[in-house]
Design a protein around this nucleic acid. Sequence first.
DNA 1: AAACCGGGGTG
DNA 2: CACCCAGGTTT
Length: 350
Amino acid sequence: MVFSKRLKQWYLQNKRDLPWRSTQDPYKIWLSEIIMQQTRVEQGLPYYLRFTEAYPNVHALADAPEQEVLKLWQGLGYYSRARNLHTTAIRVSKELEGNFPDHYKELKTLKGIGDYTASAIASFCFNEPVAVVDGNVYRVLSRIFGVETPINSTSGIKEFKALAQELIDHKDPATFNQAIMEFGAIQCKPQNPLCDTCPFNDVCLALKNNQIKELPVKIKKTKIRHRYFNYLVPHFRGEQTILEERTGKGIWSGLYQFPLVETNKPVGEAELIDTENFQELVGDQNFELDIYNENEVVHKLSHQHLHTTFWTVNIDAESLESINFNDLKDYPVPVLIENFLNEFLPEDYK
DNA sequence: AAACCGGGGTG
DNA sequence: CACCCAGGTTT
């Protein structure tokens, strides 16, 4: 039997019921795809529901302040996705009369839409026969066809795209694309795939050659960078504090945090008081500095471990640029800061 | 081609 | 602890 036919039969019997599977609205499809990038369905689903509730169409999203969008995105990670989402919403709403492009090639010109997402939207919404290649597809194809080319090499990316494109069902590209990803997620899982009940276990080369654990091949990842964060948590008279926006291209761009002193190694109270940031914060005002967590919090990102100490700085003065504890909830913050606030803030302010 | 960008689940 | 997740952009 033809690959696509066998796959489709499996899909119709095993697919999950997901909200974005029951629409062809490009806005909803686009939103779901951006949210799901590098994200498991169980983690992204509640965000999708909140976004569609808050912004039922592209115009509503375009008209929202970026800070509000980032706040809704808080906790999902890869925050450039949220900023690109907002940028593209504005573009579609204001320049394209609310209509998404209806072809792969034009879709790819939009911020945050790469090869995978353009293929997904073009096929799901407009029946264009372009194959999606996500992590699931790499795994399924490398195993069934025994492809050992690294999936994150330039040649591998081209090879797998071409293979998927050869296999796609031109009569129903949308279902084919949904099916191959769902198959990877449910049946041909990364660990302990369900080969016993697999509809391809008679032809799968990885199974035949005992290569299931070896495929797909992936080139090794980069090393972990260790950073040492000291957050100064100001506490002014009248329950007020200070947040600063992170800018530039590093982690958490667009999110807010307390004034930060970053060092190359753990630092004590004496050295901390000596830093420029600290002196700028307190000026000549009276203050009381207390370490909040004796054991550093190690916040782990994909490529960085952030060894973090929070210091409370009680300042016996009013402040002009400060934020009331009550208003902190309106600011998008990294999970690291959110966790601290949940522990530090009195119940009334959450 | 390689680096960078989060947070959480799994075995 | 290593690896993975409906990837994309920048250098």
